[in-house]
Nucleic acid binder design. Structure first.
Lengths: 253, 253
DNA sequence: ACGGTCGTTGCAGAGGACGCAACGACCGGC
DNA sequence: GCCGGTCGTTGCGTCCTCTGCAACGACCGT
């Protein structure tokens, strides 16, 4: 909509790939060097880009501060956090909280496993949307047209033999998830890691977040992990109750 | 430098305080609603702001993704990480890695304590710059004029009785740190938490990052923590060696 | 010393951003 | 149920500001 801002913002993902000098930025934007310079300076003043000692530009620290403040202001996260900690104390495994936003699912909180083997994931990192248990819950609750649109637009990486293969299969999976009110990922992302997840709902019953417990096979088998399901669901319901203002959570939709 | 971009970027910190509607954004920017709308739309297209269900705007998910990619591209971090993990395995305490950037010191990596009592901190979160051990190392190495300028510009919050009280005291502390080649924070931020830190240097000898081990009094006393200093320094030197391309690290400056 | 590359500056012209005013949707009060 | 108020949205004409050019200076390697 606004050409100047549009160009300036296009610099950010470009720099996210790695540091670049003025010429490279100007080229990739398709503008004159002087124009790129002015844009970079403005971004620099706001701390969004940083100029390292070799004069090349890379993303700046303010970006972290902003992302940080943003995540701390999410009220679901604030309410859910103590519940996640308690769940982690009870079962010992890694606990995640995730939300859906504009075609992406991302973790907004995490409590690490007490076992030495830890999953790689990080707050703010986009989730493997076609296989993660939390993603299934969040997508399953989207209004039908949007869900279809999103699912059609996705890629279906073949992480493992049990990864969701294509859009049709995913839609079927989502239907199941919506009915049963919980989701799992049994080795669909990494061969040896399983998750079970349950939804957190708002006052209107819509799913606002999803919570999962993950553990590698070497610690507990998939079957053992599934025995935690009632605990996970109880925790998610407790968060729902608090988040939606003491409205008791229903078991299924 | 560029008015339009400048205005657009000013929206981000504004929204970081919490969600706002169009009118509020326009007011705080001092522009017409239609202008604010155009800017917000552009930000929205790039995923930097998100429009929640009540139509108000807040920061968007792309911000996390960008911050994430940025931190993953930091080569110091990549090299240091395995060393941090090993150090954590050896001593069990929380390990941090931090860098300095434009008047701020921020954590870029962290390995959590294996003890149940954990510090509150998060990757990307700006550090308490007047007291943190890592901040002392990074500031101590700045060129004299910049160091003075930064130190003068800081606030000196009175976190505890042992917090750095003012600029003069901080400059003295930094001189000491520079000479001894390591730093500590003994209850200067939180009464019951102590840290020891050591610098990671680039090929030119400049401090590019700092690494610390933190532990609460209830786990180890300050004196006990200080016995870990040699281990911390050895780890930092190992990172330095690898980062600066096998150049052996010197013990002091 | 020289050509090459790269970042930076000043300027004039034109393209785009700005604010205005008016519309439509929504809400709450009378 | 009507009506005033608020809020987001749209189209448009004017003026601002962003743009690209060209020239300069710094730096590097040949």
């Amino acid at each position: 909509m606004s050409q100047t801002v549009d160009r300036a913002l296009s610099i950010l993902p470009l720099l996210a790939e790695g540091p670049a000098d003025l010429g490279q930025v100007a080229d990739r934007l398709g503008v004159h060097k002087s124009t790129a310079l002015r844009l970079l300076r403005t971004l620099h003043e706001h701390g969004l880009v940083y100029r390292q000692s070799d004069q090349r530009y890379r993303l700046g620290a303010r970006l972290f501060a902003l992302a940080q403040q943003a995540v701390e202001n999410l009220d679901v996260r604030e309410i859910a956090h103590p519940h996640l900690v308690r769940l982690n104390e009870e079962c010992g495994h890694t606990v995640h909280l995730a939300v859906y936003e504009e075609n992406e699912v991302l973790y907004i909180d995490k409590v690490d496993s007490r076992y030495p083997v830890r999953m790689y994931s990080r707050i703010g990192k986009p989730v493997a949307i076609t296989v993660a248990a939390v993603a299934k819950l969040l997508l399953a609750d989207l209004p039908e047209p949007e869900r279809r649109a999103v699912v059609d637009r996705l890629d279906y990486p073949h992480y493992t033999a049990r990864s969701t293969p294509n859009a049709a299969a995913y839609l079927r999976e989502l239907a199941t998830v919506r009915e049963q009110g919980w989701a799992s990922d049994l080795g669909g992302h990494e061969e040896s890691i399983n998750c079970v997840a349950a939804p957190v709902r708002g006052a209107d019953g819509r799913v606002v977040a999803a919570m999962s417990v993950s553990a590698p096979n070497v610690v507990v088998t998939a079957d053992e992990l599934l025995t935690l399901l009632p605990l996970v669901r109880r925790t998610a319901d407790a968060i729902t109750r608090e988040y939606s203002g003491n409205t008791p959570a229903k078991d299924a939709v």
